[in-house]
Simulated scan of single mutants.
Amino acid sequence: MPQPQRIAIVGGGWAGMAAAVALQQQGHHVQVWEASRQWGGRARALDIPAPDGGHWTVDNGQHILIGAYQACLQLMRTVGVETAALQRLPLDLRYADGLGLHLPDWAPPWDAAWGIARARGWHWREKLALLRTAQRWQRQQFQCPASASVADLCQGLPARLLQDFVDPLCISALNLPASAASGQIFLRVLQDGLFSGRGGSNLLIPRTDLSTLFPATAAAWLQQHGARLRLGERVQALTPTTDHGTAWQVEGESMDAVVLATPCAEAARLVQGLQGVPAPLSGRTTAWTNCAQALPHTAIATVYAHTAQGPGLPAPMVALRSQAGAPAQFAF
Rank of each mutant, 00 (worst) to 15 (best):
Q5T: 02
I7Q: 05
I7R: 07
A8H: 14
A8P: 04
A8T: 02
V10E: 08
G11A: 12
G12K: 04
W14Q: 01
A15H: 04
A18L: 10
A19H: 13
A19I: 04
Q24H: 06
H28Q: 05
H29V: 11
V32N: 03
A35T: 10
S36H: 09
W39I: 09
R42T: 06
D47S: 15
I48W: 09
I48C: 04
P49L: 08
D52R: 03
G54P: 05
D59W: 11
D59T: 02
H63K: 11
I64Y: 02
I64Q: 00
Y69E: 14
A71N: 13
L75V: 10
T78M: 13
V81P: 06
V81F: 10
E82L: 14
L86P: 13
L89G: 00
P90Q: 03
P90V: 11
L93I: 13
R94V: 07
A96Q: 11
D97Q: 04
L99Q: 15
L99C: 15
H102C: 13
D105K: 08
W106S: 09
P109C: 02
G121V: 12
G121L: 08
H123S: 15
E126G: 08
K127L: 08
T133C: 12
A134Y: 13
R136I: 01
Q141C: 10
F142N: 06
Q143P: 07
P145V: 01
S147A: 12
A148I: 02
S149F: 00
S149H: 05
Q155R: 09
P158Q: 11
A159H: 14
S172R: 15
N175C: 05
L176R: 06
Q184M: 06
L187E: 03
L187K: 05
G199T: 11
N202C: 13
L203G: 14
L204M: 09
L210V: 02
S211N: 05
L213Q: 03
P215H: 04
A216H: 02
A218R: 10
A220T: 13
W221H: 07
W221K: 12
L222G: 11
R230H: 15
V235P: 02
A237Y: 03
L238F: 03
P240H: 04
A247I: 01
G252K: 05
S254E: 01
M255T: 03
D256Q: 05
A257S: 06
V259N: 00
V259A: 09
P263H: 12
C264P: 01
A265K: 08
A267P: 01
A268W: 06
A268F: 06
G276Y: 11
P278I: 00
P280S: 12
A287W: 03
W288F: 14
N290D: 08
C291S: 13
C291T: 09
A294C: 10
A294T: 02
A294K: 10
T298C: 12
A299Q: 15
A301I: 12
T302N: 08
T302K: 01
Q309T: 15
P314F: 07
V318M: 12
G325A: 05
A331E: 06
